[in-house]
Write a protein that binds this DNA or RNA. Structure first.
Lengths: 244, 244
DNA sequence: AAAAATATAGCGAGCGCTCGAAATATTTAT
DNA sequence: ATAAATATTTCGAGCGCTCGCTATATTTTT
């Protein structure tokens, strides 16, 4: 019961509320692409898609997408080469699917989380926490986005760039609103947004470091919040960095 | 004359003072490994090593080290497969050489730059600027360090990890000294060091973004300095963020 | 029995790497 | 000084292997 209660705040609450699995993301993909997919039955397709995606994320985080062979991928998935090519017409399509579905999911959830919050300070806090929590929940996806961008074909190169700028834009829009309302003191909004983004990214790029030091995502989130606020918040209330 | 004068401060001055070329780094490598290298004459070996290293950095920043074929590497270098294997016994040895020599060079220059500065605030400033300037000067090397770590064999995996922690340690040691002397107000030194490192890293990981926005390394350095100091410096002098 | 899904053997291409010969530079002999 | 002998460096075609991918046979579902 104590454990359940603890999960009602911070990352635990976030995880419970969004309840997002790889299968969910694959189901979206299946339903959006029913027409063109060779495999017709959802009950068969979705678990198999999830198996391929999970195996891809696992193997390519170990050796990189390029170095991952499709034979290894199939044996990790428990399926065959033939099955793989019934779902994806090429290795590149597999890569593109993971990129597109992942980015779209992240974008959707981020928007859902902050849309209803108006005041700049709480909005900034939720944006920061949501990004960190999402990257914790979908750690392998985030790592994949960053590391495998260079393997994308030209037509898809813009997706991760847009995604990077989209997230940064969320931050800078909040900073602008906060400055206009007089609650933030920000000299250079563009660069402030960039370094906030860098801090958020470090959480999934250096996971080995933080998990070795036993830093939790909630600790990191609180720290980053405090660090940013001490640099940009005009007047701090006595408990400015805390929430009830 | 005006251009020369401008180079006396910031990155221009740094570049002039350290005057570091790829050939210099290759010369170090040649002299340290004279005994085991097949090619004996320095005047022959050093330019050819530099040609291979330059070509490797260029091609692998475009497609990744793994995807770079040795045939492409040779034609980019203007030398043959046979020549390549007279200098490196395997593709992996080429990778290891670039990692080791690069990291050692960075470590050496960083130490040279800060060793003589005692007071925490100026020491922190020089550490931050030196790291940013070095990553600007050796941009391809830094990018290579980060992106190609996963391709290293297990025996060399510890090198980039040590290097990451070494740089972070330089920062956290300064923070600790500054706190002890009462000039810094830092609650969590470990995490503060980690996010400072993240900001330094962003400069070479997102070069496309900053060059597109026409942000210079000196502008970025000044901003990061100011951002960090507004979060950790106890009392700021009226011109606390500026230098004469 | 027909349709849908999966399994497997095999293809051409491109990979890292090797090796004997060719080219070049240096030393020795006359 | 010149030629011969030797040492050093460079070359590139070819080897074995694994890759992404496919054609076809087999199994499972309806």
């Amino acid at each position: 019961m104590a454990a359940t209660a603890e999960q009602r705040v911070g990352f635990g609450a976030f995880r419970a509320e969004v309840s997002l699995t790889v299968e969910d993301i694959c189901r979206d993909y299946f339903r959006e692409n029913r027409a063109t997919l060779k495999i017709k039955k959802e009950a068969v397709a979705v678990p198999n898609l999830a198996a391929f995606v999970n195996a891809t994320l696992k193997l390519s985080s170990a050796v990189g997408f390029d170095a991952m062979s499709l034979r290894d991928l199939c044996s990790e998935s428990g399926l065959s080469m033939g099955a793989l090519y019934a779902y994806f017409s090429s290795k590149d399509e597999l890569l593109t699917m993971i990129q597109r579905q992942g980015q779209a999911t992240v974008k959707r959830i981020l928007a859902e989380r902050i849309d209803h919050i108006r005041d700049p300070l709480p909005r900034l806090r939720v944006a920061i926490r949501s990004h960190l929590y999402l990257s914790e929940l979908l750690h392998q996806w985030f790592y994949f986005f960053f590391m495998e961008t260079k393997n994308l074909k030209k037509q898809n190169r813009t997706i991760p760039i847009e995604s990077e700028l989209y997230t940064e834009r969320i931050i800078t829009d909040i900073l602008t609103a906060g400055r206009d309302e007089g609650v933030f003191s920000v000299e250079n909004i563009e660069l402030t947004g960039a370094v906030i983004k860098a801090m958020l990214q470090d959480w999934y790029l250096k996971r080995w470091k933080y998990s070795q030091r036993k830093v939790t995502v909630d600790e990191y989130a609180s720290f980053v919040e405090g660090f940013i606020e001490s640099a940009i918040v005009r007047e701090r209330a006595p408990n400015g960095g805390e929430r009830p």
